[in-house]
Amino acid sequence: MKVLVTGGAGYIGRYAVKALLKRQHDVVVLDNLSTGSEEALIEGVPFYKGDIRNFKILNELFDRENIDVVLHFAAKLVVPESIEKPLDYYDNNVTGTNSLLKAMKLASVNKIVFSSTAAVYGLLDKKSISEEDITTPINPYGETKLVSEKMIQWCHSAYGLEYVIFRYFNVAGGNKVGFSPVNQTVLIPRILCAAKGLIDELLIFGNDYPTGDGTCIRDFVHVEDLVLAHILAAEKMFENNIQSGIFNLGSEKGFSVLKTFETAKKVTNVSIPYKIVERRQGDPINSVASSKKAQNILGWTPRYNDLEEIIKDAWKYYIV
């Protein structure tokens, strides 16, 4: 099949391109390089430098390329930034997805795998979150992803668009080619930045939560496992062997922030500087996925199922 990867020069998109090529699929990349990097592009893969909000370039791409399935990763995704700049997030994430869906409809491309987020669940405090649980996002990032999900679902009802929506929990591991790890806001890269001395210390936001050690509980999924789920979904869609739906992607294992920190200390053999500070607004206490739906329907089996292994894989790219 021929797959368009939007955001294909980004962290997850690059891994998706590599995995698709390994499985002998044809790939086209669209990226505006606002956060992606030319270093992440793979030689021989057609690349269109452009924005998903640019209807003209989308039409040109779909006219030239016989696309079967779209993997849509292109988005803004930093929660604190979304709170500071909500209009930017609505413009990029919602308007961009709307533009992409319009161009797909015009080109009669009717299969999409959409990159969403566990942030759509908001402050839902459960030991295990399923796809049927209530969605009440508490920041513009989560809200724009949920709006995009609903837009895709309405297009399914109106035009027969086939879709798979993946709600990620915490993506970790791998090599972020062309990216500055200092600019990362998620937990494991921040811990490793502190271990490497790229930042002064790790900030742990609150240690008075009703958990075993007082810190929040998180679920980590390796980027290669995440990408595998996307490809399995795209292949099943291409073969008309799956019904449209929403799937969580996580390890189904919860680790506290302090446990993650202690595991990183063990892996790196570094006394990592840290400081406990006040709780951060909008942090759920427990955020752990039920991924049984993806396992049962897609046949998805994560290869990385151990926190120490995930951190080891990430750390090796910090010590070169």
Rank of each mutant, 00 (worst) to 15 (best):
G13K: 09
G13T: 07
G13S: 08
R14T: 15
R14D: 00
Y15D: 06
V17F: 04
K18H: 12
K18C: 05
A19Y: 07
L21M: 05
L21V: 06
L21T: 03
K22Q: 11
K22L: 13
K22C: 03
R23Y: 00
H25C: 02
D26N: 00
V27S: 02
V29L: 01
N32W: 15
N32S: 09
L33I: 07
S34C: 08
S34W: 10
T35G: 08
T35Q: 08
G36E: 02
G36T: 10
E38W: 14
E39N: 14
E39V: 12
A40D: 04
L41G: 08
L41K: 13
L41V: 14
L41Y: 08
L41R: 12
E43D: 10
E43H: 13
G44H: 12
G44A: 08
V45W: 13
P46H: 02
P46E: 08
F47Q: 05
F47G: 01
Y48W: 14
G50V: 06
G50W: 02
D51H: 14
D51A: 09
D51R: 12
F55G: 04
F55L: 14
K56M: 12
I57R: 05
I57E: 07
N59Q: 14
N59T: 14
E60P: 01
E60S: 07
E60G: 02
L61V: 07
D63R: 15
D63S: 15
R64P: 04
R64Y: 11
R64C: 06
E65G: 01
E65I: 02
I67H: 00
I67R: 01
D68S: 05
V69K: 05
V70L: 00
L71F: 09
L71Y: 04
H72Y: 13
H72P: 08
F73A: 00
F73D: 00
F73R: 07
A74W: 11
A74N: 01
A74E: 06
A75S: 15
K76P: 00
K76E: 02
K76I: 06
K76D: 01
K76A: 11
L77Y: 07
L77F: 13
V78L: 09
V78Y: 09
V78D: 05
V79T: 12
V79R: 10
P80A: 02
P80D: 04
E81H: 14
E81C: 03
E81F: 14
S82T: 11
S82V: 10
I83Y: 07
E84C: 03
E84T: 13
E84A: 14
K85R: 15
K85C: 07
L87K: 12
D88P: 05
Y89R: 05
Y89M: 03
Y89T: 07
Y89K: 08
Y89A: 07
Y89L: 06
Y90N: 00
D91W: 11
D91G: 06
D91P: 03
N92I: 11
N92T: 15
N93W: 09
V94D: 00
T95F: 15
G96Y: 11
T97I: 12
T97E: 01
T97P: 03
N98E: 04
S99L: 08
L101E: 03
L101D: 04
L101Y: 07
K102I: 08
K102A: 10
A103R: 09
M104T: 02
M104Q: 03
K105S: 13
L106H: 12
A107S: 11
A107Q: 01
A107E: 02
A107H: 05
A107K: 01
V109I: 07
V109A: 03
N110V: 00
N110G: 00
K111E: 04
F114E: 01
S115F: 06
S116E: 04
S116Q: 10
